[in-house]
């Protein structure tokens, strides 16, 4: 065996090659341009909330990149093969960037908590805090979905495609539902903020009522108003239409998959039963027409 071939099958060299390639891959991911998400962010760079999810994703990628870099260092690779005694060393190097990442995420949660109660404009939904979900959906669409669309081969090709379609539609459905829920919970956040404004106004006028029910009624009225405004916005209408469309697609994908299983067990599928229902409907209609014509004679 030639020396070069020996090197290829050397476990240290193999691990080295693998960690190098993974490190490069995570470097690319960390600097990944998410086109639409970035466009959104550039639109409103001053708005801190728009960067929150981007920072989270970025910090996670950086953590992985750091993890792979740590693994890639010659001393780390060597220590892997030194034995169990060096494990704490490796563990420390690996865990450090992960802790950093967690700290960043904690900071972002604190930002979110701090944001609660901040005064915002009433009856305006043009600056919805929806970027985080958008980015998740875009990331799924750009990075993960394509794996489910890889053409399938062989005898089970069709079944595998149906399974992949089902998984894909389920993921899209989950994303759409989360986005829709985020939209319909938006008025809650807004109503608390507006309530604070109203209370501040009442304080200035020294007209603060003592009855707690007054605050509830005031909040309810604001919430109702916020909903009425939201429900007419293009954002809500598009989210509603999108959610219903994706829910329907998910249901169809699930039905296609279950039809295959039912066929395997020789149980009539819903599609087959539908055909029977349709025939029955048409036959009944024809029969009633004939009956009416005969009665009229």
């Amino acid at each position: 065996m030639a020396e070069s071939e020996k090197n290829i099958f050397n476990p240290i060299n193999m691990l080295d090659t693998w960690t190098r390639s993974m490190s490069e891959a995570w470097s690319q991911m960390a600097g990944l341009e998410l086109p639409s998400a970035n466009q959104q962010i550039k639109k409103n760079t001053a708005d801190k909330k728009n960067r929150r999810f981007d920072q989270t994703i970025g910090s996670s990628f950086k953590a992985w990149q750091a993890y792979m870099s740590a693994m890639n260092r010659p001393e780390t690779i060597a220590s892997v093969f030194k034995g169990v005694g060096s494990l704490p060393d490796i563990f420390f190097k690996m865990i450090q960037p992960v802790f950093n990442s967690i700290l960043i995420m904690h900071q972002q949660w604190l930002d979110k908590i701090e944001k609660t109660g901040r005064i915002s404009d009433s009856f305006h939904f043009d600056r919805m805090d929806k970027e985080s979900l958008n980015i998740f959906n875009k990331l799924y669409d750009a990075e993960f979905r394509k794996f489910l669309n890889i053409p399938q081969l062989g005898l089970t090709r069709e079944h595998q495609e149906k399974l992949n379609r089902f998984i894909d539609r389920f993921n899209l459905f989950s994303g759409a539902i989360a986005e829709f829920l985020q939209v319909i919970f938006q008025p809650f956040e807004k109503s608390y903020a507006v309530l604070q404004e109203k209370i501040a106004d009442l304080t200035k006028e020294d007209e603060i009522p003592e009855d707690p029910r007054f605050y509830y009624q005031l909040w309810l009225k604001i919430l109702e108003g916020e909903y009425m405004m939201l429900f007419k916005t293009p954002e809500y209408l598009s989210s509603l239409a999108k959610t219903l469309t994706i829910a329907a697609e998910y249901k169809k994908a699930r039905r296609d998959l279950s039809n295959d299983l039912l066929h395997y067990f020789s149980i009539p599928s819903s599609t087959e039963i539908n055909d029977v229902y349709k025939d029955l409907h048409d036959l009944k209609k024809r029969l009633r027409k004939i009956e009416k014509a005969m009665t009229a004679q």
């Binding site: 429900f231 209408l237 509603l240 239409a241 219903l244 329907a248 169809k252």
Partner: peptide, 14 residues
């Protein structure tokens, strides 16, 4: 307003 944004064909198909 909402009904104008529905796709009944797709809903009923599903």
């Amino acid at each position: 307003i909402w009904a104008k944004h529905l796709d009944p064909e797709q809903l009923i198909d599903a």
